[in-house]
Structures are given as structure tokens and as C-alpha cells.
Nucleic acid binder design. Structure first.
Lengths: 342, 342
DNA sequence: AAAGGTTGCGCAATCGTTTGCATTTTATAA
DNA sequence: TTATAAAATGCAAACGATTGCGCAACCTTT
């Protein structure tokens, strides 16, 4: 059809014997343009198969209507849901969201930030990579006056708005639940101390033990990267102890799953001999046998709130915006892996 | 620090008493610029905290170095992996990938295409939404001379390059395997006939039955949206038949999982009474009990190939590029849900 | 020493939209 | 009818980077 792939507002203007200014205003529904002209412009635009060029507009406006979202990985239910929650709000306000994955690699995170900056996104929402210990790239974003909001994986080294769940509470409730089920020797799978979510969950774990007067045993805290395989290894480690634990509270559903596999292979009954609780409420947790007790992180809600916070920040025009910290209450999902009947 | 958030090549030029042209060339490592000047420019750029503006460059070049990828949803392992495979290739060639989700909603898909077109992406890679029956928006992309490649969920209504797995073969092998395990009454969960992948899998199913001289029974083919809940309902439906099936080949792992739940609730033994096979090799399929036999779709590989095909298309400059169709061989992953011992 | 080649850089137009400030046209009031 | 306000549109300069062409200055060759 239209071989000429470059129809601009000038072409429309020419055809209508008006100027590009008028066409631009007409397309943007500017009140200063008569309805008749608007109609004509719209019609001609359609007819010429006109395609707006956001790049030109963005250049002129210094505004791209795009916000960049950086997540460690998009294939985890939690992150995917948060993104969905963000999109809901953003799309409503006519903003587009571009999703970027850091794959939990620090260098990639830095590169991604740089790319987003170059692309002149209007703002950035991110969940920090697990391996990030230097935050200069985020500081750079802020120093350029670009709105930045962090969610879930945040840090205190940045003066930035953040949204997270109360990991401490989620952990505390999990462990409390395990104790109420009669568990007395509760192990914990965790990861690096650098990431606050893991630190908080560990704190919830220890505090619950303390409150219920269960002695803390260093040996029962196993650190790893919390993937499935790590969970398997961690469980093996625990099983080698002189006294086996009677419960595991894992900071990750995947690691909990690994533990479940090992236990089943050894015919150790869940939850009778060892109760098992995870964290995140990944969809598969309701598919396992037994179904896995876990903590729901209110992901969609978190996305909504993050986006709302972002746009608040946005409107306040960067001037004197006080970073805000929102903490959501998690929900303990009790399933069969911890429910000792009778 | 730098309050002036708008450092351009002109600022660099001014400070160095040269012109913006030279700065531009220096930054792009143009051989016509002396090394001394390049060094100086780089240094000053760093010093002034210069941030390249891709928008301006894109406007001038008519090239954004961004390719849009549209997937139904990013939280499915298969799609996430394909995206990863695409990114691997694209990033290597200095292209950025922006991920968009259609959420399997036709209107959203159309909007997304429009947004990508407006954003002047250099090309689009997509997997069609389940509910799309009109392909005008894709035709529009092509008519504008923008490279388009489809993967997995494709259509014959478009003259376009596409990459998919041999769904027919995957289905055939699954059903053949079930037959070899002694199943004689094999049901099939499928979805709309509009989507070729489901059509092909259905064909593989019927052909395998035919080749092994097992009568085809219309009642055993259950259509749904293939989510978990759909799988449950479909299984319930099957159980109401006068003669129960002794196997189910599901076009989706989720639906297979739903069926598994129902069967377990009714204490029907898997695979002895009913064998179960899914499709896609979602990670959770190895977490279920019994583990679920399924078909791996070579997702990363598919992403790689899709991207390579895309860039071929790209280089050939749109002129006389013959759409290419690549079909990958799927791999049958045999697990316990179909393995009848002895 | 003159002709031709290199090297290094500047000029100015261009990409497509937007917008402040005219300017023209039309409607209203005196 | 004329001054005046209101309405509709035009002019031209941005936004920031790129690039074809041109022009010095310097080097080589015979």
C-alpha cells in the first residue's frame, strides 16, 4: 500500500492547506483549534495512514511517557505480578512500562540503568539485584532528578521511596505457626545478609524463637542462594546433624521445595517428622504434595502502591519530595506441609 | 551535584573550543577524529557528567536500537525463557529489548503494537494472543516495513517469518508413549482451534491414535482455556463418562495439574489408573507428585533462533526478504505420571 | 617546488513535534 | 460603522545528535 513510510504532520498540513502547528494542535485536541479543522485533520491523518512519532515528541517535550521497571527476573510469579500491578496504574495514566531484567547480575543492572537513562525514561522503578552492593548507579539516577522508587529488594543506603512487605512479620508469623504446631527445633534457610528482606526474615525467625523461649541454634541457620538445588543441599546438611530439626522455615519457596524432595526421597514424613514452610507463595506451592505453607507477599497490591507512590513523587516535581516508605502486611498461607492434624 | 541536568554535546564542544560535530564523531569513535581530540572529549564528557540522549539520535537516525517483544504473559517459564534467548542475541548486537505483555487480550495486543510503532522500535517479535483472530495490526507493522517475526503462537494468515516447535511431533510422541505404556483410552485437553499450536497438537494426537489403531472418540477431546481450574473441570467431565479414560494428554501443564489434583482427591492412582502428560515443561512439573511427563519446547533455543532470524530479516533491508519458517524438534520428558512400572 | 593526498575539523541542514508569540479572521459591542 | 474582543491559525525557534560536503593545514612524491 503506502510505500511512503514517512507521513508527518507536515504532509497532513500540506494536503489541508494549513500549517503543521495547527495539525499538531488538532491532533492533541487543543481547544484553540476549531472542531471542523480537527475533524478534517483526523480524517486526513487516517487517510494518509499517519503514524505519530513519539521520538520527535519526546525530544521536543523532554518527556517520553515511559517508565522503566527493573526486576531480577520476570519469570517469577512475584515479580511478574508486581509488574502487572504497576502496569495497571501506569497504563491508566497513559504511561508505558518497559520491563528490564537484571538476572540478578550487578553489571547487567548497571548497564540497564544506563540504557534507561539514555533512553530518557521518565522514571525508574526497580527491585535490586541480589548481588548489588554498590549503589552508585541508583544515586546517579537520583542526581539527574529522575524519579526512582524501589520495591521489595530495597536498601537503606539510598534516600529513596520504597515499598515492601513486612518480612519480619511474615517470618515471625510463620515460625510462630510452626511452634504452635508443636515444632521445637526449627531450622531456617536464608541468603546473604546484604539483602534486607533476608535479614528481616532472619530477625523475625530469631525473635519468634526468643518469644517462645526456644533456644537459638546457629547450626540450624543455613545460608545459600535459595534455589531448588540449594534447598536440597541445605536439607542434606541439616539431616547430618546429630539432632534433626523438626521443621524448616525457608526464605524461599524453591529452596523449601528442594528440601521437600530430599525429605520425600528419604521417606521422612511431612509435616509429622519435619514441617516445611516457604516464602513468596509461588503458584507451584499449591501444586506440591503436600501443599506448601508459605507467605503471600501481596504482589499485585505492591505493584499498585509502588506505581502510585511513583506518580506522587512524579507530580511533586522532584522538589522537596520526602522519600516515603510503605510497608505491607504479608499473609500467612497455611497448607498441609505444616498442618499436623490432631 | 550537577544541577544542570542537560549537558549536551554542545556543552562539551564549547568547553573544548571545537564544534558539536567533532564531539559527536569523537564519541562515536569516528576515524576522522584524532586520538587526542577523542581523549579530550571523553574526558570532558565524564567531567561534565554527560548523558547521551538516545532520543535525539534516534530521531536523526530513524533508528532506535530497540526491538519490542510481545508475549501473552511474562510469568510463564516458556515465554520468559524465550525472551531470555532473544535478549542474549539482541544485547550482543547492541540492541535493547522491551518486553510487553498482551495478557492474552486482543485489544491490549493492538494497543501495544500501536505504542511500539509510535515509539519507533526497529522491529517487533511477538507471540500472538490466544484471543486474536484479526491480524490487521500485524499487517500494519509489515506495511510499514518494520521487521516482524512471530514465535510459537503464529498464524498462517500472515506472510511472516516464524519460529515454532513441531507441536505435531511433540503431541504424537506423547501419545505414542502413552500407548506404549499400555493406555488404550486416551483423552486430550485442548483449546481453541484458531491457534495453530493447539490445532497441531490435536492432529498429532489423532494421528498417533490412528497409527496405532485406537479408535478416536470425540467425547475424549475436551476444550477449555487450559488453566488449572479448566483442567479440573475437564477431568471432572471425563470422569462422568460411562467409560473412564486411562490417560490424558493435555496441551497444557497447568490443565494437567488440575487433572492431577482431581484424580488425587478421588484416590485414582496415577499413572496406574490414569496416566497424565502435559505440555511445555513448566518448572513446576518436576515438583508435582507424581512428577509430570511433559514436552520441552526448547525455549531458550527458540529465543535465540527467533532473534537470529529477526536480525537476518533486518539486514536484508526488507527488500525481497522471503519469510522463513523454522521448526524446532521438541523433546519428550518422561516422568512418573506416565511411567507404569513392570 | 608544484601537484596531489591525507588528516582533522567546521558549517549547516535535518529528523518530526511542540509552543510562545504574533497575525489574521470572525463575532460582539458601542 | 468602527473599535474591540474573541477565535482560529501561522511563524519560527526550539529539542540534541548526526552527517554530507567543504576547507584548511600538513605531508608526500617526483
Amino acid at each position: 500500500m503506502s510505500a511512503k513510510t514517512k507521513v508527518t504532520i507536515h504532509d497532513i498540513a500540506e494536503k489541508l492547506n494549513i500549517t503543521a502547528s495547527t495539525v499538531s494542535r488538532a491532533l492533541n485536541d487543543n481547544p484553540r483549534i476549531s472542531d471542523a479543522t480537527k475533524k478534517a485533520v483526523l480524517k486526513t491523518a487516517k487517510q494518509l495512514n499517519y503514524q505519530p512519532n513519539n521520538i520527535a515528541a519526546a525530544l521536543r517535550n523532554g518527556k517520553s511517557f515511559i517508565i522503566g521497571v527493573i526486576v531480577p527476573t520476570a519469570d517469577r510469579y512475584f515479580f511478574a505480578s508486581v509488574v502487572r500491578g504497576i502496569e495497571e496504574i501506569a497504563n491508566n495514566l497513559n504511561y508505558k512500562v518497559i520491563i528490564c531484567q537484571s538476572y540478578d547480575i550487578y553489571e547487567k543492572e548497571v548497564q540497564t540503568i544506563e540504557a534507561l537513562l539514555n533512553a530518557r525514561v521518565d522514571g525508574i522503578i526497580a527491585s535490586i539485584s541480589k548481588n548489588t552492593e554498590n549503589f552508585d548507579h541508583f544515586k546517579k539516577v537520583q542526581s539527574k532528578g529522575i524519579p526512582l522508587v524501589l520495591f521489595d529488594r530495597t536498601t537503606d543506603e539510598l534516600e529513596v521511596s520504597q515499598v515492601m512487605i513486612d518480612d519480619y512479620l511474615g517470618a515471625y508469623k510463620s515460625v510462630e505457626h510452626l511452634i504452635q504446631q508443636g515444632c521445637k527445633r526449627i531450622a531456617h534457610f536464608t541468603s546473604t545478609k546484604k539483602v534486607s528482606v533476608f535479614k528481616e526474615r532472619l530477625r523475625g525467625y530469631t525473635d519468634a524463637l526468643r518469644d517462645y523461649e526456644i533456644p537459638f541454634d546457629e547450626q540450624l541457620v543455613v545460608r545459600s542462594n535459595l534455589q531448588l538445588e540449594d534447598g536440597r543441599e541445605s536439607m542434606e546438611t541439616l539431616l547430618k546433624l546429630k539432632t534433626m530439626p523438626d521443621a524448616v522455615f525457608s526464605s524461599s519457596d524453591y529452596a523449601a521445595m528442594g528440601a521437600m524432595q530430599v525429605l520425600k526421597e528419604r521417606n521422612i514424613r511431612i509435616p509429622e517428622q519435619v514441617a516445611l514452610a516457604g516464602f513468596s507463595n509461588e503458584p507451584f506451592t499449591s501444586f506440591t504434595d503436600p501443599t506448601l505453607t508459605t507467605v503471600d507477599q501481596r504482589s499485585i497490591k505492591m505493584g499498585n502502591i509502588t506505581a502510585e507512590l511513583f506518580f506522587e513523587h512524579f507530580k511533586s516535581g522532584d522538589k522537596a519530595f520526602v522519600p516515603q516508605k510503605t510497608v505491607l502486611k504479608p499473609e500467612l498461607i497455611i497448607r498441609n506441609s505444616t498442618l499436623r492434624k490432631g
